[in-house]
Simulated scan of single mutants.
Amino acid sequence: MRTLVLRLNPGDDLRASLDSALGRSGSDAAFVVSGIGSLSGASIRFAGAPTPARIEGDLEILTLAGSLSPDGSHLHISVSDAEGRVSGGHAAPGCVVRTTAEILVAVLPDWRFARTLDPLTGYAELSPLSLPATPRAGS
């Protein structure tokens, strides 16, 4: 396992930035371990909802976690607004960094994450595949 420590800048889209980081990592599998920061607005799909809701205004990221794969990321987020109200669900495109986002990613080079349709859920679900170990130099 390798780690990436990311600092996103104002105006960055959270999901697009994480997908890009996975692409640059040279791996096809990673987990977001932790994330904090602020957003100027968020698109969050609440449990059971067919489409994301839009939340405007200054938001604090309280939690961010999920899996990253070339076939799509699965991210959960909770945010609080200026009155301390908390909302959470699936982080959709459109979560825009306000001042900063600090994110810890665990990259798993010995794994390949794919998303395949699960007939039980009707969604593209995680299909983890353990890759053969790469021999180390001098072994």
Rank of each mutant, 00 (worst) to 15 (best):
F46W: 07
F46R: 13
A47L: 12
G48Y: 07
G48D: 08
A49C: 08
P50A: 12
P50D: 15
P50K: 14
T51C: 06
P52D: 02
A53H: 06
A53P: 01
R54S: 10
I55F: 14
I55N: 00
E56L: 13
G57I: 08
G57W: 03
G57H: 04
D58V: 11
L59G: 03
E60K: 11
I61Q: 09
L62C: 07
L62I: 15
A65Y: 01
A65L: 07
A65I: 02
G66E: 03
G66C: 04
L68A: 00
L68P: 02
P70N: 00
P70V: 01
P70A: 00
P70F: 00
D71G: 01
D71C: 03
D71P: 03
G72T: 00
G72R: 01
G72L: 08
G72A: 05
S73P: 01
S73H: 04
S73Q: 02
H74F: 05
H74C: 01
L75M: 02
H76D: 07
H76N: 09
H76S: 12
I77Y: 04
I77W: 04
I77K: 05
S78P: 05
S78K: 08
S78L: 04
V79T: 12
V79S: 11
V79G: 09
S80G: 07
S80V: 08
S80I: 08
D81N: 13
A82D: 11
R85F: 12
R85L: 11
R85G: 07
V86M: 09
S87G: 05
S87V: 14
S87F: 15
G88W: 06
G89D: 06
G89A: 10
G89K: 03
G89M: 04
G89I: 10
A91T: 09
A92E: 15
A92L: 01
P93G: 05
P93V: 06
P93W: 05
G94L: 03
C95W: 02
V96K: 10
V96F: 12
V97Y: 09
V97F: 06
R98T: 09
R98E: 15
R98S: 15
R98P: 07
T99G: 06
T100L: 12
A101Q: 09
E102W: 08
I103W: 10
L104W: 02
L104D: 13
V105R: 02
V105W: 06
V105N: 04
A106V: 10
A106H: 10
A106W: 02
V107G: 13
V107A: 13
L108K: 07
L108V: 08
P109E: 13
P109I: 14
P109F: 14
D110L: 10
W111D: 08
W111I: 03
R112L: 14
R112N: 10
R112V: 06
F113R: 00
F113V: 11
F113C: 10
F113H: 13
A114L: 05
A114G: 10
A114N: 03
R115M: 02
R115K: 12
L117Q: 03
L117D: 08
L117S: 04
L117A: 12
L117T: 10
D118K: 01
